[in-house]
Design a protein around this nucleic acid. Structure first.
Length: 809
DNA sequence: CTAGGGTTAG
C-alpha cells in the first residue's frame, strides 16, 4: 500500500479497492502507458540517437509515413527501398506496419534481417514488432533468435520487450519459457499479467490460470484491477468448470467496474459474449439470454455462442428459433459456427429436411469448405440414417481431421456397419490422422457390436498406449465391450479400476450383468451404487428391470418398479413399462402382463405389445397372441421385427396362409427382414454365416461335422421342433431348413477350429430359435464344449447340456 | 469471445 502510485493517490476518496468505479479503471488504463513509456525511455537512453538519412529528403520520409498510415505496404516498401541507408526509426515503422498484418509478418522478419545485415542496431521498439511477427507465424526458432538479440542488446528486461517475449512464447506454445520470462521481469504491468493468464487459459491449464489470477488479485497495486482482457481470458475457464457462482461474481464486478460498457467497443462485445457463454455453459440459459438482450452491440460470435448454448442444454427447438431470428436480422451474423450448432439441433430433432436446407445455406453462403460445419453436416446425415450421403460428403471434403474421421466411424457404427467402421479407422491411421478419445469411444462399440473380443482387446491396448485408458467415457465403452464380448469378468475389472465413475458407468455395468442373466449381481451393484450415494436415473431402472427379466426375477423386478417411483421419485416412462411387460410375460404371467398393460397410465405403444407378443410365441398362447397382434396391427408395426414375430406366431399355429399374408404386407410396405446371421471370431478374424451358407472355404467339413453331431444327438432323443420354421414346407424340408441355421454352422466351425479347452463364442444378430437352443445344449454335452451364444437379446452360456438362461430365452 | 465427432437402456 505504501507504493501507491499517483493513480491511487488521486483517487483517495474512491470506494474500497474491490469496487473500482469507472474513472479509476480508465485512469489506470492511461497510467499503464505512461509507466511503460517511462521505463522504455530510460533503457532507450543506452542507445545512440537515430541517424540522419543521408540522401533521403524530408518529403520522401513524409510520403513513406503516409503510405504506412494508409496501409499501402507495397508502395511504402517501394519508397523505403529508395532510401540509401534507412535509420532504425524508419525500419521500425515499416516492420511495425508489416507485423500488424498477419499475412505480411514474414516480410517484417525479412526486413529485420536486412536491418541486421546493414548493421543498424535494433532498439526497444524494434523487438516488440519483430516478436509480434514471430507470434503471428508461430515461429519459435526465429523468436528465440530475437530473444538472444534482445539479451545481447541489453533490452530483454524492457517492459515492452519482455511482454512481447512472453507473448511470443505463449503463442508458440512454450508455456514454461513464458512463465520464466514473467517470473524474471523486473516490472509487470496488467498487459503482462493478462498475457500470461491468456497463455494458461488457452492451453487448458486451469489450475495454473486460476492460481495466476489469484496472485494477480493479491498484488496490492490498484493498477492491477482486472480489465476486459483479463476477464475475457478468465471466463471461459469458469465456464468449462461450470463455476456459476464465481462467474456470477465476475459479472457483478464487470457491472461495478462498468467494464460491460467499455469505451473500446470490441471489449464490450467480447466481454458480453464471454459472459453469456459462461452462463450458458453453466446451464443458466435465462441469464445468458438476459446478457445477450442487454448487449448494445453483438457480432456473429455473440449469436453463435447463444445458439450453441441452447444446443448444449438440449433446447433444440429454441436454438432453432434463435437461429431463425438471427437470419431475420440479415446475413451479416451468419457464420459456419452457428450453422454447425443449428445442424446439431437438426440431428437431435431428427429433422432431415431442415438439415438439408442448412446444407444448401452453407453452400450458398460460400462457407461450404468450412471444416467444422462440414463435420457436423456429415454427422447429421449419418444420424439420419443416410450413411451413403455422409460418405459422399466425407469424400468431397478437401480437408479432413480427426473429427471428420471420428464422425464417419461412429456414423458407420450407428448404422450397423461395424466392419466399415474398422475400415475407416484403418484409413485414418494410413493417412496419419491421430485418433483421440472420441474416436476410440466411437470405435469400441464396433467391437461390442461384432462381439469381436480380439478387436476389442486391440482397441483396449491402443487406448492404453495413447494414454486414454483412465478416461471415464473410454472405460464406459470398454465395460460395455467386454460385457457384450462375453467377458463380464473383464468388464468388472475395468469398472473397479477406473478412477472416477459417472452414471453411465454404473448403468453399463448393471446392463452387462443383465444380458448375462446375472440378476443377483445386477441388484447387488445397484445397492452398492446407492451406498456410494450415486442417485440412479431412469436408465438405471431400465437396466435393472431388464436384468431381473433376463434372470426370471419377477418378484424383485416388481419390487424395483415400485421403489423407483416411491423412493426415487422417478416417473416411469414407456421404456419402463416395456421392461415390466417383458418381465411378467417372460416369466409366464401372460394374463398379468395383459392386465398390467390395461392399467398403464400411458397409452401403450407398439413396443409394449410386441414384448407381450414375444412371450405368446414362446408359451404358444395363440388366443392372447391373436388379440395382441390385432393391437399391433391397429397401432401399425414399426420396423421389421414385429412382422417377423407376428408371422412366427401364425407359423407356429400352423396357420401358414396368415403367416404368408403378414410377409406380403411386410414386402409391400417396404420392410425387409434382415437375414439371420451368426459369426465367430477365430484368431482375430471374423467368420460369418447365414442360414444354409456354403460360401465358407471350409464348408464341406463344417457340414460334415454338423451332420455327425445331429446323428449323435438324435440317438439321445433329440427331435427337431419344426414349428420354428417360417415357410410352409413339407416336414422333411422343414427339418433341413432348421438344420442349417446360421448359429449351428458357426458353432460347427468353432468346434473344428478351436481346441477342446477353448470356449466357443458365437454371436447372432437375431434371437436364437428354440430348436437351435435345444441342439446347442446337446452339443455342449456330447462334444464336452463350453459354448456361449450372444443373440439380439442376451447371453446364453451352454455347458454340460444346460443353459444359463433356464430356457427362458 | 463462439464452434464440429463420443459411452448406457429397449
Amino acid at each position: 500500500m505504501r507504493h501507491r502510485s499517483l493513480a491511487s493517490a488521486a483517487s483517495a476518496s474512491a470506494p474500497p479497492p474491490q469496487m473500482p468505479p469507472l474513472l479509476l479503471v480508465l485512469f489506470h488504463f492511461h497510467w499503464r502507458h505512461h509507466a511503460a513509456r517511462r521505463l522504455s525511455s530510460t533503457t532507450a537512453c543506452l542507445h545512440p540517437p537515430p541517424l540522419q538519412h543521408p540522401g533521403a529528403s524530408a518529403s520522401l520520409l513524409l510520403k513513406l509515413q503516409d503510405h504506412i498510415a494508409r496501409g499501402h505496404l507495397s508502395r511504402a516498401r517501394h519508397l523505403f527501398d529508395q532510401i540509401p541507408s534507412p535509420d532504425v526509426r524508419t525500419y521500425n515503422d515499416l516492420i511495425r506496419a508489416y507485423s500488424s498484418s498477419p499475412t505480411a509478418a514474414a516480410d517484417g522478419l525479412h526486413l529485420y534481417r536486412r536491418m541486421l545485415r546493414h548493421r543498424v542496431a535494433p532498439n526497444n521498439y524494434t523487438f516488440p514488432f519483430t516478436l509480434k511477427a514471430c507470434s503471428a507465424l508461430a515461429d519459435l526458432h526465429c523468436g528465440r533468435a530475437i530473444h538472444r538479440h534482445a539479451i545481447h542488446a541489453g533490452l530483454h528486461a524492457d517492459l515492452f520487450v519482455s511482454t512481447a517475449l512472453l507473448d511470443m512464447y505463449v503463442k508458440c506454445a512454450c508455456l514454461p519459457d513464458a512463465a520464466h520470462i514473467f517470473a524474471t521481469m523486473p516490472a509487470r504491468d496488467l498487459v503482462a499479467w493478462n498475457a500470461m493468464l491468456a497463455g494458461y487459459a488457452h492451453h487448458g491449464m486451469y489450475h495454473h490460470a486460476l492460481a495466476h489470477f489469484h496472485s494477480m488479485q493479491m498484488q496490492a497495486q490498484a493498477r492491477l484491477r482486472p480489465n476486459a482482457s483479463t476477464l475475457v481470458a478468465l471466463l471461459p475457464l469458469l465456464a468449462q468448470q461450470g463455476a456459476l457462482a464465481q462467474g456470477t461474481s465476475v459479472h457483478a464486478y464487470c457491472i461495478r467496474a462498468c467494464l460491460h460498457r467499455n469505451r473500446k467497443l470490441t471489449d464490450g462485445v467480447l466481454l458480453g459474449t464471454a459472459l453469456l457463454d459462461m452462463y450458458a455453459k453453466c446451464g443458466s440459459l435465462v441469464y445468458a439470454r438476459r446478457v445477450f438482450d442487454a448487449m448494445p452491440t453483438r457480432n456473429e460470435v455473440t449469436w453463435s455462442a447463444l445458439i450453441g448454448g441452447f444446443v448444449l442444454c438440449s433446447r433444440m427447438t429454441q436454438a432453432f428459433l434463435l437461429f431463425k431470428g438471427m437470419l431475420a436480422q440479415g446475413l451479416c451474423f451468419l457464420s459456419p459456427t452457428s450453422i454447425a450448432s443449428a445442424l446439431r439441433a437438426c440431428a437431435a430433432l431428427d429433422d432431415l429436411r431442415m438439415g438439408e436446407q442448412l446444407h444448401a445455406l452453407l453452400a450458398k453462403s460460400g462457407v461450404h469448405a468450412d471444416l467444422t460445419a462440414g463435420n457436423s453436416l456429415l454427422s447429421m446425415y449419418a444420424k439420419a440414417g443416410l450413411i451413403d450421403q455422409a460418405i459422399a460428403l466425407f469424400d468431397e471434403m478437401a480437408v479432413k481431421d480427426t473429427v471428420s474421421y471420428s464422425a464417419l466411424v461412429s456414423g458407420n457404427v450407428q448404422n450397423g456397419r461395424a466392419e466399415e467402421a474398422f475400415l475407416v479407422f484403418k484409413k485414418m491411421q494410413a493417412c496419419n490422422v491421430e485418433p483421440d478419445a472420441a474416436t476410440m469411444v466411437s470405435l469400441i462399440p464396433a467391437c461390442s457390436h461384432l462381439a469381436a473380443l480380439q478387436h476389442g482387446r486391440c482397441s483396449h491396448g491402443s487406448v492404453i498406449i495413447r494414454g486414454l485408458a483412465s478416461q471415464t467415457s473410454i472405460c464406459n465403452a470398454l465395460i460395455d465391450m467386454y460385457a457384450k464380448c462375453g467377458r463380464i469378468d473383464l468388464s468388472r475389472q475395468v469398472f473397479n479400476m477406473m478412477p472416477s465413475r459417472d452414471i453411465v458407468s454404473w448403468n453399463t455395468m448393471i446392463a452387462g450383468y443383465g444380458i448375462h442373466g446375472l440378476g443377483k449381481e445386477a441388484t447387488a451393484l445397484f445397492l452398492e451404487m446407492n451406498n456410494q450415494g450415486f442417485p440412479p436415473d431412469g436408465v438405471t431402472f431400465i437396466c435393472l428391470l431388464s436384468a431381473c427379466s433376463h434372470s426370471g426375477l419377477v418378484m424383485e423386478g416388481k419390487h424395483w418398479f415400485h421403489v423407483m417411483g416411491r423412493r426415487y421419485g422417478l416417473t416411469p416412462r414407456m421404456e419402463h413399462y416395456i421392461c415390466m411387460v417383458d418381465l411378467l410375460s417372460r416369466g409366464g404371467f401372460l394374463d398379468e402382463a395383459y392386465e398390467f398393460i390395461q392399467s398403464m397410465p400411458l397409452r401403450a405403444d407398439v413396443r409394449v405389445w410386441v414384448a407381450l407378443l414375444g412371450a405368446c410365441r414362446v408359451y404358444k398362447n395363440i388366443d392372447l397372441g391373436k388379440r395382441v397382434s390385432r393391437m399391433i396391427q391397429e397401432l401399425g408395426p414399426e420396423g421389421t421385427g414385429n412382422f417377423v414375430l407376428l408371422s412366427n406366431i401364425y407359423s407356429a399355429a400352423g396357420r401358414f396362409d396368415e403367416a404368408a399374408e403378414v410377409r406380403i404386407i411386410q414386402k409391400v410396405q417396404g420392410f425387409n427382414k434382415s437375414p439371420g446371421c451368426s459369426w465367430i471370431e477365430i484368431n482375430g478374424s471374423l467368420h460369418a454365416f447365414v442360414g444354409g451358407d456354403q460360401s465358407h472355404p471350409q464348408s464341406p467339413e463344417i457340414y460334415r461335422e454338423l451332420d455327425n453331431i445331429l446323428v449323435g444327438i438324435k440317438k439321445l432323443g433329440y427331435q427337431p421342433d419344426t414349428s420354428f420354421v417360417l415357410q410352409d414346407l413339407e416336414e422333411e424340408e422343414k427339418e433341413k431348413a432348421l438344420i442349417y441355421h446360421s448359429e449351428k454352422l458357426a458353432i460347427a466351425y468353432g468346434i473344428l477350429s478351436l481346441s477342446e479347452d477353448k470356449t466357443i463364442f458365437v454371436t447372432k444378430n437375431l434371437r436364437v430359435c428354440g430348436d437351435c437352443h435345444t441342439v446347442i445344449k446337446h452339443i455342449s454335452l456330447v462334444r464336452r464344449r463350453a459354448i456361449i451364444v450372444r443373440d439380439a437379446n442376451r447371453f446364453h452360456h451352454f455347458k454340460n447340456g444346460q443353459c444359463s438362461c433356464g430356457d427362458f430365452w
